[in-house]
């Protein structure tokens, strides 16, 4: 089943003459885990806003083409109607605190309250996501006393409690320390088992290579590469779009020049693949020499 369908999308922000997104065509299947990569200003954040139904209704820009999420055309539905159907997690953990509630538990309840979920149903759902995000012991703390990583997990919990079929994440770890990032990645990974459709923009290519079903590369507002992680992350074009290679890929690319990577083997995107490849070279060398 197609969960998200984008056809002929071009989008200009208000007061801007260059499109932020240009002629995008895209289909995302339900349950697919899609990573979007690209240099700064390539249009990743704009795409996130489009795929969570906030553009065009919330922004006064000009949009050509059509976007449907779960068969709802984003032109005809307000963000209020998309709430609970599409989740969105943003970069800055602090900005995602509602500032309406005094404890972590109540903070997670905020979205449920807005969507009119019956209060008797809430505690169970909230406890479930607090466990999932490792925040259960902090349930009575003020959201403002949490660390950055904990706040971002709280933002995730606040989305997950609504059980949205689609979750969009715009660089959710950009402002976190390594430990905080690891915890957030770990939670997102558990979603892959849940049939949630995930779209994430992220700079950590290593994690993408391990987790994503599909990688889309954006350059100047257009989709320039689209395919499985091995294909996109090893593409010779990648560097022309201002995207750095994974260190494994980069090592193999450089080694290729000296004949230190087997010519028939695709470039590696994980540690395992690269170990395998280099092993093969050394065994060939040993066998030959």
């Amino acid at each position: 089943m197609v969960m998200i369908e984008v056809t002929g999308l071009t989008y200009y922000y208000p007061l801007s003459h260059t499109p932020a997104l240009k002629e995008i065509n895209l289909q995302i299947e339900a349950g697919q885990f899609v990573a979007v990569i690209g240099a700064n200003g390539a249009g990743k954040s704009t795409l996130c806003l489009v795929l969570s139904g906030l553009i065009p209704t919330l922004f006064n820009g000009r949009m050509l083409g059509n976007v449907t999420i779960n068969s709802m055309n984003t032109r005809n539905h307000t963000p209020g109607e998309f709430a609970g159907r599409v989740g969105l997690v943003l970069q800055n953990p602090t900005n995602q605190i509602s500032e309406m509630r005094y404890t972590v538990f109540e903070e997670v309840a905020f979205g449920l309250e807005n969507l009119g979920v019956s209060p008797s149903e809430m505690p169970e759902r909230i406890e479930h996501v607090l466990r999932l995000t490792g925040l259960i012991d902090l349930r009575d703390r003020s959201p403002f006393t949490l660390s950055g990583g904990q706040r971002q997990r709280l933002a995730l919990a606040s989305m997950l409690v609504l059980d949205p079929p689609v979750l969009v994440l715009d660089e959710p770890t950009a402002m976190l320390d390594p430990q905080g990032s690891r915890e957030v990645f770990h939670i997102i990974q558990t979603l892959t088992t849940k049939n949630t459709t995930v779209v994430i923009t992220e700079h950590n290519l290593e994690w993408i290579a391990q987790t994503a079903d599909r990688v889309i590369a954006l350059n100047k507002g257009s989709i320039v590469l689209d395919g499985n992680p091995e294909f996109v992350l090893t593409s010779p074009l990648l560097e022309t779009f201002g995207i750095d290679y994974l260190r494994y890929t980069q090592a193999a690319r450089e080694s290729q020049i000296y004949g230190l990577w087997p010519s028939q083997t695709p470039l590696p995107v994980t540690l395992e693949q690269s170990v395998l490849g280099f092993n093969r070279v050394s065994s060939i060398k040993k066998g030959g020499g």
């Binding site: 963000p79 209020g80 969105l88 943003l90 900005n95 509602s98 209060p119 989305m159």
Partner: peptide
């Protein structure tokens, strides 16, 4: 500058959802 992100975060949590609201406590 933070205003935009904060307003988006409210939107996706149903702040302006048309449904009648409930209260946890």
């Amino acid at each position: 500058v933070d205003v935009e992100e904060r307003s988006l975060a409210l939107e996706v949590r149903g702040f302006s959802a048309p449904t009648p609201k409930t209260n946890l406590t």
